[in-house]
Structure formats: structure tokens, C-alpha cells
Design a protein around this nucleic acid. Sequence first.
DNA 1: CCTACCGATCGGTAGG
DNA 2: CCTACCGATCGGTAGG
Lengths: 195, 195
Amino acid sequence: MSTRTGSRHSRDDVVRTAVRLFAERGFHGTSMRDLGDALGLLGSSLYAHIGSKSELLVEITREGAELFQSLADKVLASELGPEQRLAELVAGHVGIITDHLDLATTLFNETRHLPEPERSEVVALRDRYQDAFRQVLADGVAVGVFRPGLDSRLSATLVLSLLNALDRWYRPDGGATPAEVAEELTRFVLAGVAA
Amino acid sequence: MSTRTGSRHSRDDVVRTAVRLFAERGFHGTSMRDLGDALGLLGSSLYAHIGSKSELLVEITREGAELFQSLADKVLASELGPEQRLAELVAGHVGIITDHLDLATTLFNETRHLPEPERSEVVALRDRYQDAFRQVLADGVAVGVFRPGLDSRLSATLVLSLLNALDRWYRPDGGATPAEVAEELTRFVLAGVAA
DNA sequence: CCTACCGATCGGTAGG
DNA sequence: CCTACCGATCGGTAGG
């Protein structure tokens, strides 16, 4: 429904529309003609803006992975204690997903369809991110605010399981605001690891 | 690596191989020729056993959804209290995923690619299953074993977020046995809803 | 289960 | 960004 007359699209328009379609139908479920249709041009015309279909996926997943990585860097550089750090990670994570729902969905579901070496790079970023959670949990155990004997690796996996599933059920027009969701998730997570 | 000489495949061989490939590469990332290759025959030969590619996905997702539904039916028919019911649901859910990993992965990731009306049917089964969790949580609040004021709908979503993510990280050759995973998940879930 | 195909669609390019 | 294509691959069928 965008104005057609005289409207040329930017490369960014193409990327943003690709994020939406990849999230809705999957990478292999979206053809370049689908993407062109959504923008009001031919599939072949997309190649004036991009080099290839997989380039789009690379760009999208990398951008998503970097959002999470920036959050971890910020929290780890802070002066907060383990409990506050965990709460900041949870709230920040929820914020990224609620603000960039299609980006997160595409990152979580389509990373496996990335070509190498980009797939391995995104997986490595994800592992680094998960390790930030593991570190914060281990620190909390060490200073006694989290349960003694807690398996920090497994617990990081469980916390991220909870957080990453958000893209599967959170909808902006749903009952809860992002802040309410973050609060509820924080409560659940802290209960799960509390001393 | 199956014996090739004189070996004809059953329809079930085709379905089981499809589950594996759909889990690994996704429905749209798996061609009928891929599937034939994995079985040692031509893509076109598959049509001696099945009617269509989407029929395979329908059968696979329906089978998966029914496993979970059977669990819910069994637990709801039991004489257990809410806490024990929740523990049985968690343990049973973990058992289904660890015993049928590719089936669960395909159910969770590929349901959206189902044709209608089958997609809606599977979604309805999933909603019924989720409602079993919601009911058990609400009962537990009513009798005082779960936290007063707990939002049973949201909590059911969170519990299932935790459980369904299992297919993303559980590996049979990983560090933890299914029983250990179930125990850890039960602990985490019960902590999250405890009074 | 293979041979021999089918029309449709795929990602992508040359040239303007 | 369109016109006019390309070879490759898609799901699927007829006939044996």
C-alpha cells in the first residue's frame, strides 16, 4: 500500500522487508519474487540493491546477533552485582526481542540456513552471549546470592530457553507490555536460581 | 548404510527418514530428491509410497502432537495433586522430546508450513495441550501449593517455553541423561511457580 | 522402484 | 528498475 509513483526503494527497505518475510515464512519459504512483490517490484530488480539472497540472511542474522552481544558487553562492563546483572540481562534481552521481533525470529530460526563461514560466526557469537549468562550465574553462586551447587552452564541454557521462546508468543498487541513481560520473566528466572 | 541388494523400503522408512531431514534442514530445505537420496532411491520413486510431500509433514506433525496430547490426557485422568501432576507433565514432556527428538523438532519448527486445514488442527491440539498446563497451575493456586495470584495462562506459557526449548539443546550424547534433565527442569519449574 | 518426462518456479544475469 | 532471459531444480505423473 505504499505510494508507488516515483518511489524508489533503498537497500534498507529491501532488508527490512526481507526480515519480515523470513520471519513469517522462513528463508527457504520466501522467494526473491515474494520479496519483490512485497516491495512492489520484480524479483530480478532486487539485484540492483543486493548481491544475493543469502547475503540478505547473513546481514540480518549478524545484525541480530550483534544486538545481543552489545547488551552482554554493556552489562559485563557495569559495576552491578550478579543479581542486578542477571536482571539487566533479562530486561535487555526482552527489550531486544520486543523491539525487533522479526529480527529475533529470523536469527533464532534461520541461522542454520546460513552459508559457511557465516553460520559458524553467528553460532560463535551466540555461544559468547550464552557464556555471559553463565559467568554471571557462576559469580552469583560464588558470592552466595544464587543457589549453592547450581550448574551455571545448564542454568544459563534454561534461562536462555525461557528468554528466547519469547519470540514465539509475544505479540505487541497482546495482553502484556514489554515491561510487564520483563518483570514476570525476571521473577521466574530469579526464583529458578535463587539461593 | 542399509543393505541395498533386494531391499525395498516400507512407507514407514520413508516417513522416518523424512522426520530426520525435516528436522535437520527444514521442510522447504528438503527436496524429494534429497529424501530419495537418503533412502537410496530416486525422488520420483517415493510416490510409490506416499501421495505428496505435504502429506509427509501432515503425518509427522500429527503424530508428534498426539504424543503430547496423550500425555496430558493421562495426567489429567490421574488421581494426583497439582504439584505431582505438574511434575508428571514435565517429566513426560521431557521423555517425549528425548525419545523423539527429530519428531519434536519438526513439530515445533515446521507446523507453520502445513497446509490448511491441517495447520489449524495441529495448532488447536497444541492449544489444548497448553490448557492442560494452565489448568493444573490454576488448580495448584486454588489449593495453595502454587503462588497466590500467579497468572496461570502466562505461567503455562513460560513453563512450556522452558520445556519446548529442549529440542534445541538436548543431545543424546550430551552430558546429562533424560532423567537428569527432567529432574533439573522440574526443579526450575516448581521454583518458578511455588507458593 | 526405474525411465522418461512435465510445467512451474527457483536464484540470478545482460543490457538497457 | 524493467525486459528478456538463463540453466537448475522443484514437486509430481504416466507407464512399465
